[in-house]
């Protein structure tokens, strides 16, 4: 069914290459060393969860807990080392907005380039162009090379494209930290609309209030393991527990 995500015992392993060379033999043999016996690091392991079409799932966890790794696996950029990932339907990955921008091209050219990267035809993108320009509030800057954009303009255009491609699954990675408050609110509204339209949302953020507002179900990652899967309130509590962090004590948690 379009919009379903299924992770079965997924593990993603990275090879860590140390570059320290101590002996001559190692220096010579070491030239080929990068092809074998590197230290392995499991960024995520044994992760299983199911997501029905139309669900909106959040994922929280400390830096380096494996969130982005799982997101990239869902987006198809990384292949799982073990286990299986099944994704049904068209994905729009908002992983670092504007990842596909070419600085030398104009905003308009980049709309088409970004669309093509997500598998949309020129004609489909042409029919969306006006709405995208409108949402991004770029006006005539759309015909300026994007290297001259401010970072806010960059992000606005990136969001406008990703939000307008009618995905069946929308992956949002920490992208709402951009733009001014008003634009952030506009983005949240847009994501709510997309969600109301029946699109599955997979949302990663460190902004707990956004996660709570948007997701019925939240996964908590801790050192590569999925440690909690349930309602948002509880998930956030669990996450803070694991961190040993109480936001009410912030910003001086040590002074207590």
């Amino acid at each position: 069914m379009a919009g379903a995500i299924s992770f079965q015992n997924v593990g993603v392993c990275f090879r860590m290459h140390r570059e320290k060379v101590t002996t001559l033999k190692e220096a010579v043999l070491g030239r080929f060393r990068h092809l074998r016996d590197a230290e392995v690091f499991w960024a995520a392991r044994g992760v299983s969860f199911e997501c029905r079409p139309g669900d909106s799932i959040g994922m929280i966890g400390h830096n380096g807990s494996g969130k982005s790794t799982l997101l990239k696996t869902a987006a198809g950029v990384l292949k799982p080392t073990e286990g299986s990932v099944r994704i049904e339907g068209r994905i729009s990955p908002m992983i670092e907005l504007a990842a596909g921008f070419d600085p030398e091209l104009t905003g308009r050219d980049n709309v088409f380039l970004n669309g093509a990267l997500m598998g949309y035809s020129r004609r489909e993108m042409a029919s969306k162009l006006d709405r995208i320009v409108d949402f991004s509030e770029l006006g005539e800057f759309i015909d300026v090379p994007v290297k001259n954009y401010s970072s806010g303009m960059y992000a606005r255009l990136g969001f406008a494209i990703a939000a307008d491609v009618e995905p069946e699954i929308l992956i949002v990675d920490e992208v709402l930290a951009v733009g001014d408050e008003r634009f952030q609110a506009k983005c949240m509204d847009r994501i709510r609309d997309i969600r109301a339209g029946g699109t599955t949302i997979f949302f990663v953020s460190h902004a707990m209030e956004q996660v709570a507002a948007l997701c019925d179900r939240v996964l908590v990652m801790h050192h590569g393991k999925l440690v909690f899967d349930g309602p948002a309130e509880e998930a956030i509590r669990r996450y803070r527990e694991l961190q040993g962090f109480r936001p009410d004590a912030a910003p001086h948690p040590r002074s207590a």
Partner: peptide, 20 residues
């Protein structure tokens, strides 16, 4: 084949940027 349009766009990008 599904991404042939992307290939055309990347070709166009290369030509555009090359002669800018």
């Amino acid at each position: 084949l599904r991404f042939r349009e992307l290939m055309f766009l990347l070709v166009a990008r290369d030509l555009k940027v090359r002669y800018k």
